[in-house]
Design a protein around this nucleic acid. Structure first.
Lengths: 143, 143
DNA sequence: GTGGATAACATGGGTTTTCATGGTTGCAAA
DNA sequence: TTTGCAACCATGAAAACCCATGTTATCCAC
């Protein structure tokens, strides 16, 4: 299970160190793709397969589902954790998520999220303020 | 499984390099045809057969399905991956998809899509803006 | 709390693979 | 035979991958 919040730097070649804790799980293969709210999702191969299989069942005759499949599937990229424990984040995903140097790696149970540092801070302060309101909505969903 | 987004150039002879990752799957034979949203679809022979069989079962009485079947079946062309890992994209498909020099090769699970670079960028910026809305619709479908 | 040791992360350079490009050959149709 | 097109081969450029070193942070002993 992925939990926690870490801060790392992208180097000039677009590589990002993965926190030590997570490497073992990701070492068998991982997939990074577009996420929601302008971040990237990083899955283990197993978790990714579950998601991709669902996406593949969507009919390509509908414009909306085509668009979504293109965002998530074509947006996805296999990544390897190298011997120094880093992954390569492709250009097009870096620019999608607005990643500059400072990157936040956040654990969310079955996935990791990669955020631009600044965006993460903004998002956090915003949601922390609204947390009580959000919590009440969650309660309605059984949490 | 095909995933990812790659950028390659058509050379003057109409050849296109296929990303290394995909060559093994396509080496046993591939089919390129007209796709939706002004791109081309590239299938392995196996996947193509499945699709063609499905298209063949569509009711011949409907004008819509006739048109769709003609688009995809009559537009289809066998292609070979040469020893340098490239395929020849026929003229009529190049002009259908408006392919100039820059071409994006996108992996979508059981097919590859070939896009004119500019068209792809336009499409992407459009759908990325709507991505949260689309995603919420998808999650209602159980994704 | 302070200092030292160790592990984790950042940065840079060199090598290998992959892609782009152009020339050449061989086959087929005119 | 000639011409055109498609497959093959050779070269150079660019990017990905690997390895080595320097720096920062963390942990533990004192």
């Amino acid at each position: 299970m992925f939990i926690g919040e870490y801060s790392h730097n992208l180097d000039e070649k677009g590589r990002l160190a993965v926190p030590k804790k997570f490497r073992a799980d990701l070492s068998k293969g991982a997939v990074v793709t577009r996420g929601l709210d302008n971040c990237l999702f990083l899955y283990t191969k197993t978790e990714w397969k579950k998601l991709a299989d669902k996406l593949a069942t969507l009919p390509f005759s509908q414009a909306n589902t085509r668009a979504f499949a293109r965002l998530m599937l074509a947006g996805a990229m296999d990544v390897l954790v190298d011997k120094q424990g880093r992954i390569m984040v492709p250009d097009y995903l870096r620019s999608f998520a607005g990643l500059k140097k400072g990157v936040v790696v956040a654990g969310l149970y079955n996935r990791l999220e990669l955020w631009d540092q600044e965006k993460w801070e903004e998002y956090k302060t915003k949601t922390e303020k609204e947390s009580n309101t959000i919590a009440e909505q969650m309660f309605e969903l059984g949490v």
